[in-house]
Simulated scan of single mutants.
Amino acid sequence: MQPSFPENAKSAVLDEATAAIMLENLYFAYPGKRQEPVLDIPEWHIAQGDHVFLRGPSGSGKSTLLNLLAGILVATRGTVEVLGQELGALSARERDRFRAAHIGIVFQQFNLIPYLSVLDNIQLAAYFGRKKQIDFDSTIKQLFAALALDDSLITKKANHLSVGQQQRVAIVRALVNAPEILIVDEPTSALDSDLRNAFMDVLLAISQSRGSTLIFVSHDTALSHYFHHVVNLSEINRLGAGNDVS
């Protein structure tokens, strides 16, 4: 049974004609002498509330694309529009604020602050997201229970956790604000099959209850059946397999 989460007032019926993400003539090359291109995507739109499983071999540019969607990287040219905001028009600080307020991210590197407690790591996400968390404590408890995290871990420093525990805490941190956009990159690599399935249940439950748009990258194609759409990056990227990048 999937866990239930409190409904958000913003979770009104979504206008399916409204895109959460719009890419137009996106071209990206990492700076350097060679400036080898990585992505050349003429057009890609994701509707609000859609759940997309993005696949492709190592080196095809999946992680690069996720970094562009999160505003961590900026397109060499073209348009990356997220929730109606053109990210290239924002300064680095403005992109940071936009990401904190609207986007939850679980990357392969967990990016927990090692000397802070688990609770402090999660609270930082809520603080930078600037969202009122009336049900903050209960949401953490629900997420901990769903991901088989013991409540006693809440006061432990992040660097005292196992790799699997760190990964699950990173997932809690990304989900706690119920962001409009969830970007998830290989989140189950350190989880066994039972925890993997529990994670997928809680991820889909909170995404559906809050109307979140989900972009999920994984080499585990067995997870693709959870998703509305499965997209092969080579189908939208004119460069095919890219130039041996992430």
Rank of each mutant, 00 (worst) to 15 (best):
D50A: 12
V52T: 11
F53W: 05
F53C: 05
R55D: 02
G56W: 00
G56P: 01
G59E: 04
K62I: 01
L65V: 02
L66K: 01
A70Y: 02
V74I: 14
G78R: 03
T79W: 05
L83A: 10
G84L: 09
Q85E: 11
A89C: 14
L90T: 09
S91K: 11
S91Q: 10
R95F: 06
F98L: 11
A100S: 14
H102W: 08
H102N: 14
H102E: 13
I105T: 09
F107A: 13
F110P: 08
N111Q: 13
N111E: 14
I113T: 14
I113L: 15
P114H: 06
L119H: 13
D120H: 11
D120F: 00
D120G: 05
Q123W: 07
L124I: 14
A125D: 02
A125F: 07
A126I: 05
F128T: 15
G129S: 10
G129A: 06
Q133V: 10
I134R: 11
I134V: 15
D135M: 06
S138M: 10
T139V: 10
L143F: 03
A148I: 07
A148V: 07
L149M: 10
L149T: 03
D150T: 02
S152D: 08
L153T: 05
L153F: 05
L153W: 04
T155I: 12
T155R: 06
K156S: 15
A158V: 02
H160S: 14
L161S: 08
S162H: 09
S162E: 08
V163I: 14
Q165T: 06
Q166A: 05
Q167S: 04
A174S: 13
V176T: 12
V176I: 15
P179W: 03
L182A: 05
L182I: 13
V184R: 03
E186W: 00
S189V: 13
